[in-house]
Computed example of a mutant assay.
Amino acid sequence: MNAMVGIVNTPSSRLLRAVVYGHFAALVGGLVSFLASLPGYNVSVLAIAVGWMVGTAVATGSYRHGGWFYRTLAVGLTYLAVGASLAPALYVEMQTPRPGIDLYVHGDNQALEHAFKGQGRVPAPPMLSMSEEDRRTDSVVAALVLPCFAVPIDSFRRPLSGLAYVTALFVAAFRSRRGVLESARSRSASPAGQ
């Protein structure tokens, strides 16, 4: 039995197991967080649960080995899971026309002045004509870039959500730490002469 544990508990097997367990927990946590936010509610508190899940999964996969690499892995996976769950809503919000801002960006100063003076109704912003290839490229870039920036953008807009995200990252790092209790128990159980 001990020979089997020695083979399974190599550094590379711990690393692989921690990566697989952590990715699975991040995927499940991000999906649950995304599905819970679909009705339009702010579910940033679920990020703490995602951090707990990912940190626990990384710690379980590494047999509570801990260390800076496993903590970084847990924090990074939590960050990406939370960012990926926020990215679709942020993308839709970025694509929603904003009459005053879009008029300013497109340089229609006369329509902008009329809109802010209350004269007439606000004209619809000009639609950008994009080819199918440009739309596809825009979607791919948004899918790769937005998860990285969704957490800080949402944190600036909603500071309490930002506090929940920081707490989630702390929880992920804390849960993936080295198992202090297990090593203390093993030292106290060993004979004093060894």
Rank of each mutant, 00 (worst) to 15 (best):
P97E: 08
P97D: 06
P97K: 06
R98A: 07
R98G: 00
R98T: 04
P99I: 02
P99T: 14
P99M: 02
P99L: 03
P99A: 15
P99W: 00
G100P: 00
G100S: 04
I101N: 05
D102H: 01
D102M: 03
D102Q: 03
D102S: 03
L103I: 03
L103C: 02
Y104G: 02
Y104K: 01
V105Y: 05
V105D: 06
V105P: 00
H106F: 06
H106L: 04
H106D: 15
H106I: 03
H106E: 14
H106N: 11
H106R: 06
G107I: 13
D108E: 15
D108N: 12
D108C: 09
N109Y: 10
N109K: 01
Q110K: 11
Q110A: 14
Q110W: 09
A111D: 14
L112A: 09
L112K: 03
E113K: 06
E113Q: 12
E113Y: 12
E113L: 15
E113I: 15
H114W: 13
H114D: 15
A115T: 10
A115R: 02
A115M: 12
A115F: 07
F116Y: 13
F116I: 15
F116C: 01
F116K: 07
K117F: 13
K117A: 14
K117I: 09
K117R: 14
K117N: 13
K117W: 08
G118Q: 04
G118F: 00
Q119Y: 09
Q119A: 11
Q119C: 01
Q119P: 01
Q119G: 02
G120C: 05
R121G: 07
V122L: 09
V122A: 08
P123V: 07
P123G: 09
P123R: 10
A124W: 03
A124R: 07
P125W: 07
P125F: 05
P125A: 15
P125E: 05
P125N: 08
P125L: 03
P125S: 10
P126H: 05
P126R: 02
P126K: 01
P126M: 10
M127Q: 15
L128Q: 10
L128H: 09
L128P: 00
L128I: 12
L128Y: 04
S129D: 07
S129Q: 11
M130D: 00
S131E: 08
S131W: 02
S131M: 08
S131C: 08
E132H: 07
E132C: 01
E133I: 10
E133Q: 13
E133H: 12
E133N: 08
D134L: 13
D134T: 14
D134Q: 15
D134F: 02
D134I: 05
